[in-house]
Design a protein around this nucleic acid. Structure first.
Length: 417
RNA sequence: CGGGGCGUAGUAUACCGGUAGUACGCUUGGUUUGGGACCAAGUAGACCGAGUUCGAUUCUCGGCGCCCCGACCA
């Protein structure tokens, strides 16, 4: 894409009402737009990152047998009434709306009820299980206090997967498989070294759950890390009784602030019981499937990546999630030959399927480099009088600033490995 | 929800009970051209409502919005 086609612009100053690093950088670079407190729009660059993050998650979910679907954001109260969660006492973040005919509906804060009700139509035999379904879907939560940029918002997309298993053993097997898939996701988006599977309270669903917590000063949570075991314990269950159960001692644990980037938890038969979801086992007996729920917030992941992978100049995207693979920057000084050469390289890269943002603006070097650093595409290619006279292209790595010269005949090969 | 703070051009900020200033941006012209250039001329602003006052962007009250700390986080 040519920069001159991009309608967004970078800016030097962050808006005064944004304090968090993630929102400041993402807004300055033109990735997101704040619509109101806790509600952000994704602009072309931001949408590309969001789509890349979702692609990574999708690939990992498909690899463990997940089937993607799309439920609805408008929610029928009926199944929620059956589980007792339609009331504001049960879920205090409901957005609800009145229908013209006097009825009421909800804006989805989560999807356990509708997915369980939906599966009732398709699950009837032990042969129908296990089943793993997931979606990327907008959730609405009327938070009393949205905060931390895109980390805690009132409207956000969540990847939520629900597992339906014959019994506890079958459920556990998938639960562990999914935990491993989550770690692969965090590895691919570049935050695995700081992300720990974390023992946590199960909230109202179960006694315990597992969170994936990424160590970061900007985090809302506090965890206690057991370095040797490579796992952690959430502060909410940091009590002697639980630690003993886990075979840990307080002296072995290290306190850290962290961001919850994922959460998986057992649902047992709570929802299948309440909504009457059953299957017939080999003996013909009606049995309630054992369920599990598995969430990752792509936007929160995006915010976490920015918090962790950025410097004073801007963002440093990992390859898998970067909006473009390379940032082609021309320094023309009004010289048409350089423009023509940059255009040629741009077309060549596109022809080889390399995703490239081409800064074809008639701007000075300083401004282009500053914007390039801010936007944070992993690899920058510079074409200027200097590089042309040396018969090559300058290749700069955003993460560490290392620069190499590559001849244009070997450029594509250089970029592809 | 408890506490605190803040609303001034597109953005960031200043001053002031009496014609609202600066920088960036944007427009035009010129000079520049490898790390956010320079000169000149333009463009554009007081969240809403009520009150006090001769006069309110400024003071008072209410509303709305935004931020931070805490609580909450299914």
């Amino acid at each position: 894409m040519r920069h001159t086609q991009l309608f967004t612009k970078t800016r030097k100053d962050a808006p005064k009402d944004e304090v968090s690093k993630n929102a400041q950088l993402l807004i300055r670079a033109g990735y997101i737009h704040k619509e109101m407190a806790g509600v952000y729009a994704y602009l072309p660059l931001g949408l590309r990152v969001m789509n890349n993050i979702q692609r990574v998650i999708r690939e990992e979910m498909n690899a463990i047998g997940g089937q993607e679907l799309a439920m609805t954001t408008l929610q029928n109260p009926a199944p929620w009434q059956k589980t007792g969660r339609w009331s504001d006492e049960a879920i205090d973040v409901w957005f609800k709306a009145a229908l013209k005919d006097g009825g009421e509906l909800g804006l989805a804060p989560t999807h356990e009820e509708p997915i369980t009700a939906l599966m009732q139509e398709y699950v009837s035999s032990y042969k129908d299980m296990p089943k793993y379904v997931y979606q990327f879907q907008t959730k609405f939560r009327n938070e009393l206090r949205a905060k931390s940029g895109i980390m805690r918002t009132r409207e956000f997309i969540m990847k939520d997967l629900y597992s339906f298993s014959r019994d506890e053993a079958q459920f556990r097997e998938f639960y562990e498989k999914c935990a491993a898939a989550y770690m692969r996701v965090f590895t691919r988006v570049g935050i695995a070294d700081k992300t720990f599977r974390t023992f946590a309270s199960g909230g109202s669903f179960s006694k315990f759950s597992d969170e994936f917590q990424t160590v970061c000063e900007a985090g809302e949570d506090t965890i206690y890390i057991h370095r040797q075991k490579g796992i952690a314990v959430n502060k909410e269950v940091y009590v002697d009784e639980v630690l003993a159960e886990l075979g840990m001692q307080k002296s072995e644990l290290e306190e850290a602030k962290s961001i919850e980037v994922g959460n998986i938890f057992p649902l047992g038969t709570r929802f299948s019981d309440a909504l009457g979801l059953t299957y017939k086992d080999e003996t013909g007996a009606e049995v309630a499937p054992v369920m599990g729920s598995y969430g990752i917030g792509p936007a929160r992941l995006m915010g976490t990546i920015v918090e962790l992978l950025s410097d004073a100049k801007g963002i440093i995207w990992p390859k898998e999630v970067a909006p473009f693979a390379v940032h082609l920057v021309s320094i023309t000084g009004g010289n048409d030959e350089i423009v023509a050469e940059a255009d040629r390289i741009y077309e060549m890269l596109k022809d080889h399927g390399i995703e490239v943002l081409y800064d074809d603006r008639d701007a000075r070097a300083g401004e282009k480099f500053a914007d390039s650093d801010l936007i944070g595409i992993p690899t920058r290619l510079v074409i200027s009088e200097k590089t042309m006279s040396q018969g090559g292209i300058e290749v700069v790595t955003r993460a560490n600033g290392t620069t190499t010269f590559v001849s244009d005949s070997s450029l594509v090969e250089h970029l592809q490995n």
